[in-house]
């Protein structure tokens, strides 16, 4: 049994799953729009949470939030389940598929056999859509891949019950109820305000624009505090979080700028185009930082590509983003 499902490749798994699931149910919404309405953009530098023994840097909001917020803001109802028992989790998936409903699943990327070996790490926040099964094989739309894939029951079960930090515990979700009318303009404004608040008004100094400045101030002293080798590992990890994990480039800044462009059309607000432009430039600055960081990691940095110079770029990003989100907040209020 295979549900008629349109697979559209996306940059990021959660916003891609959101956009593709909504689209399946007749809500035409791009990945960038889902990311924007779901307030996906974020910044956090959290040295006390470790990933591969290195501090966590994140450019996106916590997992699960994008689909939750975008559904709520559009008035769509989601049914969510978690399970103790893997067999029961698979049975529940089968029953939902039999009703003709595609199902989102949270999985551990390490156990997905279609992942290239070089991308197989233990991260448990990978979202995908199951849209059918044939015997022991499941049809999967994994939004970060160009084409749909097929995966065995055994592998899917293992991925749904990956262990460790943020274990999915078989989490699955699907859409059950849609309002007669959706107010996109209202949802967009709420989404924008949400991002502005976290970026500008977080009480924690490690979140939002303050978090970006915090990273800059810390980064500057990494070589002195940690030694050269460890400093490079810290630096590489930031670059990786910014560019590697399905961000669409520039730590999700480009994707958000694309959302602002779309929002400008829907709201009929040309000033958003200007803000989108400025955010694109900020994304480019983040990429300048990545280039310099990578050159340091390769041992090919010139003298003016020091940690101080990198901290300066990050500080510049903080400054740009502060003014962007101030103006954006003023526009949305």
């Amino acid at each position: 049994m295979k549900i008629e499902f349109q697979h559209r490749q996306s940059a990021h798994c959660e916003s891609g799953v959101t956009s593709n699931l909504f689209f399946h149910h007749g809500v035409d919404i791009s990945e960038a729009m889902a990311f924007g309405i779901g307030s996906g953009l974020f910044f956090g530098y959290v040295p006390f949470i470790r990933l591969n023994n290195l501090p966590l840097t994140t450019y996106r909001s916590a997992t699960g939030g994008i689909i939750k917020r975008s559904a709520r803001r559009l008035g769509i109802k989601i049914k969510r389940n978690r399970f103790r028992n893997p067999e029961k989790a698979m049975d529940a998936l089968d029953r939902t598929l039999a009703r003709g409903i595609p199902v989102g699943c949270q999985t551990g990327g390490y156990w997905l056999p279609y992942f290239p070996e070089a991308y197989r790490f233990h991260f448990n926040m990978h979202n995908l859509i199951v849209y059918g099964k044939d015997g022991d094989e499941y049809f999967v739309s994994d939004p970060i891949f160009a084409d749909p894939v097929v995966i065995s029951r055994k592998d899917l079960m293992k991925a749904r019950f990956a262990k460790g930090a943020l274990a999915p515990k078989g989490k699955m979700y699907y859409l059950i109820k849609f309002p007669a009318q959706m107010d996109f303009a209202d949802a967009i404004v709420k989404g924008i305000k949400g991002v502005c608040r976290t970026m500008l008004k977080s009480p924690l100094p490690i979140i939002g624009v303050r978090g970006i400045r915090f990273l800059a101030n810390q980064l500057e002293f990494w070589p002195d505090r940690l030694g050269k080798e460890k400093a490079l590992l810290y630096l590489g990890q930031v670059v990786r979080m910014q560019e590697e994990i399905g961000t669409g480039g520039g730590g999700f800044r480009f994707m958000y700028a694309a959302f602002l462009q779309e929002a400008a059309g829907i709201l009929g607000e040309a000033r958003l185009l200007d803000i989108s432009n400025r955010l694109t430039q900020t994304g480019d600055r983040w990429r300048d930082f990545a280039v310099m960081g990578a050159r340091n990691c390769k041992g090919r940095a010139s003298e003016d590509e020091s940690y101080n110079a990198m901290a300066e770029i990050v500080r510049n990003c903080a400054e740009l983003e502060e003014s962007i989100f101030r103006d954006l907040y003023a526009l949305a209020s």
Binding site: A11, V239, R240, E243, F254, C297
Partner: peptide
Amino acid sequence: ISYAVNKNGRYELVQSYGWDPKTTS
């Protein structure tokens, strides 16, 4: 997928095989 701006200043989804700085990391 990368997000990039075309000649008319509009965002497009563009396929990318990768980027050296991120491969380095």
